[in-house]
């Protein structure tokens, strides 16, 4: 179904809907940078970048509250229906996931500071770098799909989340091997474990955002569905 958000009789309604979407995209951009910086910090051991990520976490939280308030205002004043209603609900859900991604980025930064001392022989470097790059791509992919109402783009993100989950499982096996070989590495390994876990969670949140794209465009709620089910729903006419 073709959707055009600029044809309401009420110009202010157009502006309000535009605003929540733009603000969500702005928040998405910030969150994406936060994640990229957190990954950069852990891979390079640069504590200044990590500090910066922790400091900016506050901004992300404030954006969530502001956008959610704007959504509430639209619900109260306009009683949106159909695609407008789905847009408001989807934005409200997406900002929650974005806020949680922000939390995970800041967790990565905090653990970065804890492992910074012995970053020279960091465990699972490759896995973190690879998974990190992957989830950053997923966030921007999900937001792009939202902006363009692109169901196929959203499904690609869901598909990539499966890959990230697999990489996470294999990185865990690697960590366990280290810990068994050298119990002195356990302290550091646990920090790395938390970081890997945070990255994996970011992937899950990016997937949630993509599910909202399918809700927005198709009107079907595909949360808690398998990839196959999502593909079926997304391509149903």
């Amino acid at each position: 179904m073709e959707m055009n958000f600029n044809q309401h009789i009420s110009g202010q309604f157009n502006a309000d809907l535009e605003a929540i979407r733009n603000h969500m995209m702005g928040m998405g951009g910030l969150v994406e940078r936060q994640v990229a910086n957190a990954i950069e910090a852990i891979c390079s051991g640069d504590t200044r970048v990590a500090d910066d990520v922790i400091r900016r976490e506050d901004e992300v939280d404030k954006m969530e509250v502001t956008i959610d308030h704007e959504c509430t205002q639209i619900l109260v004043r306009r009683q949106p229906a159909a695609s407008d209603l789905r847009m408001v609900l989807a934005v409200s859900r997406v900002v929650r996931d974005l806020e949680r991604i922000g939390d995970e980025a800041s967790k990565i930064a905090i653990h970065t500071l804890e492992v910074a001392d012995n970053s020279s022989n960091q465990l699972c470097q490759q896995a973190m770098r690879y998974m990190g790059a992957e989830v950053v791509k997923m966030i921007s992919g999900a937001l792009d799909a939202f902006a363009r109402h692109d169901v196929d783009g959203a499904i690609d993100v869901v598909r990539n989340d499966k890959l990230v989950d697999q990489q996470y499982a294999s990185a865990l096996r690697e960590l366990i091997t280290y810990m068994m070989e050298d119990p002195r590495s356990i302290g550091q390994a646990i920090n790395i474990l938390w970081i890997l876990r945070a990255i994996e969670r970011i992937g899950d949140h990016a997937r949630n955002i993509s599910e909202q794209v399918i809700y927005l465009v198709k009107g079907t709620d595909v949360r808690h569905s398998s990839l196959t089910e999502i593909e079926e729903q997304a391509h149903k006419e």
């Binding site: 179904m1 073709e2 055009n4 044809q7 309401h8 009789i9 009420s10 309604f13 306009r78 949106p80 229906a81 159909a82 695609s83 407008d84 209603l85 789905r86 198709k218 009107g219 079907t220």
Partner: peptide, 19 residues
């Protein structure tokens, strides 16, 4: 009808795009 209308005209009307 009010969450996922089938026809674009229904959608346009209930979302206040004409009427």
């Amino acid at each position: 009808v009010f969450t996922t209308p089938e026809h674009t005209l229904t959608e346009a009307y209930i979302t206040g795009r004409f009427g």
